[in-house]
Design a protein around this nucleic acid. Structure first.
Lengths: 105, 105
DNA sequence: CGTAGTTATGTCAAATATGACATAATATTA
DNA sequence: TAATATTATGTCATATTTGACATAACTACG
């Protein structure tokens, strides 16, 4: 919808800091953007931690190198589902996932 | 199934003991499905907790009553993004979200 | 230097998710 | 009971997300 497009713009270019009011983002929408951004960074960390190339992870999770790159760069075309799949495939536990969510922001 | 076969299967990356492999799901995919299911139930709980009808929540998050129903029933057409948006819109904190993730399964 | 390995970026057809709508089913309340 | 509110289910056109591909941009090492 409209809000999603706005979320996209913000995640793509506009400082992810806190432009909540800027384009009329809901509190929840802004929080989700921040959460996804944080998880994206964590995904990159954890893949490296497990000594996999983007291509290796991609194959393991049935995706492609370019999409893994997009996951890790916080590309707005990437769903939360895909980010979490990447994390779980990298061996991240629910506990670690939860920790990142608590620390987010 | 004997221990040897189990060991061989598990070494090859298969979880033995649930329906994951039967459905052709990787471990990560199965874990994601379980996570989403748990979050869906939690979403229903929390909406009720905040005394909103599905229609009220739908309006607040820019969705529709029928989609909120699908969120809460664990409909496979619902993304994790949408589930989390529903949760955050219902006033769930990151801490509570994390707690559910840890407890999942 | 070159070259092999890895990561980033753009594009696109196909797959999937979405809100909206109708309407059925089930609660709730007068 | 009936009337009303709420929730469930199915469908569909549209929007978004996807893997795949090409290729550019690094990185590391001989």
């Amino acid at each position: 919808m409209d809000a999603d497009k706005r979320m996209r713009l913000e995640a793509a270019g506009w400082a992810v800091g806190d432009a909540s009011n800027f384009l009329g983002l809901t509190e929840a929408e802004a929080e989700l953007v921040e959460l996804k951004t944080r998880l994206a960074l964590f995904a990159k960390e954890q893949r490296k931690m497990s000594n996999m190339s983007q291509d290796a992870l991609a194959k393991k999770m049935g995706s492609s190198q370019s999409r893994v790159a997009k996951i890790e760069s916080g590309d707005p075309s990437v769903s939360l589902d895909l980010i979490v799949r990447a994390l779980l495939t990298s061996g991240v536990t629910r506990q670690e996932l939860a920790q990142v969510i608590v620390d987010s922001n």
